[in-house]
Design a protein around this nucleic acid. Structure first.
Lengths: 204, 204
DNA sequence: GTCTATATACAGATAGAC
DNA sequence: GTCTATCTGTATATAGAC
């Protein structure tokens, strides 16, 4: 992505990871064949096996890269008006989790929960847990500043994120169309943030 | 289950559905072979094909039966104390969605989202949508009685259920262990109901 | 390291005897 | 209707030439 890959072998390796990543998240683990991966990557099947010993290993390698939450999400959890800060953060959060790639990766981890629990573990830590932890820290600072009154920042962060994720995200995971447009989605976030702030004693 | 099945054919059909249902939810669609189903049901593979024309048809038949939310959940959404009514309803809801079978069925629908969207549709209607609708009706009655102040009962119902479902349910879907014990889970529900009631102006 | 060709196994689905 | 035996396709993985 960033720097050109020196050797031909490294380039091919990258091609394989790119192709396999796309196919896995779109079609799933079992449905995607090594022949497909090789063809999509423009290399022979044997080359795939030369780089990654097995289908399982290839799978693990290329999904792990996708579990990491975009760093962009975490920029700017600061500001004078807590309500605006939250709305901004949540807005980016919702956009991210409703993106096609995020839904695909989640779906894939759920599908392979039995056979690849290690992957689920990494997904959870690098994704949901990280977002919750970041928000919890911010909420804790609000509590200490006397802006909010909450016992457990961790739980509070989960509550807010779960509400804003909404049922629409579940629909996407199930392959169903969103039940609402962007405006309705934004309104739902607003209502959830409002409920959250009211419930935790925000005087805005 | 309830009444004895008359003909031998009907018995075998039931055996097949039972066996296939178990295997599908535990192993997934692709991983489960028709040979396995036949063996587990104690019949020959051809008998399976005689009853259900294809693997797809068999799949649809035996999962649809599992999508329906247990009717028990909906009994008794009445009572003088709204807080107790909600706590009782939510308690049963949480127990249900965290059950092994519920997690399996959800996981399966997500896994087959691309290939069997019709199943996801039925799952959503018979499951989440029904629970939300039922709770929304109750919340609407509370609003009309002046107990709560809420604009949109549907959204409010979603908010409460999503909070109470918690992140633990996602962990289960991903095949990870619950992050909390029953006591902590109950406390989380309590905190969410409290936040909900406070936020919507309940004077308890 | 990379390719073409192949070994081995098992899937879904069917044919034909009883 | 139910069984045993089989067809056909395709999967993962490997052998051997360049």
């Amino acid at each position: 992505m960033t720097q050109p890959l020196s050797t031909r072998s490294e380039r091919k390796r990258e091609q394989i990871l790119e192709a396999a990543g796309q196919l896995f998240v779109q079609q799933g683990f079992i449905t995607t064949s090594m022949d497909e991966v090789a063809q999509q990557a423009g290399v022979s099947k044997q080359t795939v096996y030369a780089h990654f010993g097995s289908k399982d290993e290839l799978f693990t390698h290329c999904i792990e890269r996708k579990c990491v939450v975009n760093e962009l999400l975490f920029s700017g959890l600061t500001g004078s008006n807590p309500r605006n800060v939250l709305m901004d953060f949540i807005g980016r959060f919702v956009e991210m989790i409703n993106s096609e790639e995020a839904v695909y990766v989640y779906r894939l981890c759920v599908s392979q929960a039995e056979t690849h629990p290690d992957l689920s573990q990494r997904y959870f830590e690098a994704g949901p847990a990280k977002v919750i932890g970041t928000l919890a820290e911010y909420l804790k600072s609000l509590h200490e500043a006397g802006v909010l009154t909450l016992d457990d920042p961790q739980i509070a962060a989960e509550q807010l994120l779960l509400m804003c994720r909404g049922i629409g995200n579940m629909r996407l995971a199930l392959g169903l169309p969103m039940d609402q447009d962007d405006a309705a989605c934004h309104q739902r976030v607003t209502q959830s943030v409002d409920l959250f702030l009211r419930g935790y004693g925000y005087q805005g």
